[in-house]
């Protein structure tokens, strides 16, 4: 199962959702943000090295942290040297070994945002309950449709308590919604390179990520056809 976590707008929490979902699904999280990586990087080979042919996908997977991670380099020269079209093959190689892969996609609608969608069996759309975020999420949904990647779920991230907008997103974007409440715990966990589950397993956001993982598992995403069945 290969999932692309995407959303169009920057700063809505794609990396946070990817990391926490990776933890819940016991998946490898690939930091697909080739230009502006967010997830913690170690000292080993990274996605830039893999896409430039300097390392194999499997040797770049870092299993030392709480979540298995294929990190991405942070240099401009590395971004320049990486061949973005090699992503699909890289992701498939990782999935053949680890089975479950979550790709943290970059913001925007350029090829670096499109290629994770192409590599994935289904996508998850992360947005915030604000107008600019939803507009960009709609654009990304259109991109996913054009590429032929089904939308598995919408994540309404950092939702204030009692916010109706999150429920309306399901109709707007055409997929069931998981709401992750606003919480300082998420930011604190992310800062220390941990999933929320590791620092506060019973907290509301940790529960939300767990229920997101359950919902995704129940979707029985067909890896052969890329179709979703609920």
């Amino acid at each position: 199962m290969i999932l692309a976590v995407t959303g169009g707008k920057g700063g809505v929490g794609k990396s946070t959702v990817s990391y926490n979902l990776g933890m819940e699904l016991d998946a490898v999280v690939i930091d697909g943000d080739l230009g502006m990586a967010d997830l913690p990087a170690g000292h080993g080979p990274d996605l830039h090295d893999v896409l430039a042919g300097r390392a194999t996908p499997l040797e770049a997977v870092d299993e030392s942290g709480p979540v298995a991670l294929l990190p991405c380099g942070r240099t401009l020269a590395g971004t320049r040297a990486a061949d973005p079209t090699a992503l699909t093959k890289t992701v498939r190689t990782v999935a053949s070994e680890y089975d479950r892969v979550v790709i943290d996609s970059p913001a925007g609608l350029r090829c670096d945002a499109g290629l994770p969608l192409l590599a994935a069996d289904a996508c998850l759309l992360v947005t915030r309950p604000t107008k600019p975020a939803v507009i960009d999420a709609l654009r990304t949904r259109e991109l996913a449709r054009a590429i032929g990647t089904p939308l598995a779920r919408v994540i309404c991230n950092r939702a204030p308590a009692n916010n109706d907008n999150c429920n309306r997103l399901g109709t707007t974007l055409g997929a069931p919604v998981t709401t992750v409440p606003e919480s300082p715990l998420v930011a604190r966990a992310q800062r220390s390179g941990q999933p929320v589950h590791a620092i506060a397993p019973d907290s509301e956001p940790a529960q939300a990520f767990a229920s997101l993982a359950d919902a995704v598992e129940q979707m029985r995403i067909d890896t052969a056809t890329g179709a979703t069945n609920e």
């Binding site: 971004t79 973005p84 090829c111 945002a113 290629l115 590429i147």
Partner: peptide, 26 residues
Amino acid sequence: ESQPSSRDLLRTLGDSRPPRDITPKR
């Protein structure tokens, strides 16, 4: 109606890599 290829996407959506001239020389 099959999925486009990676190259199709690159062609249509555009290269996201920084231009060569701003990348520092090693």
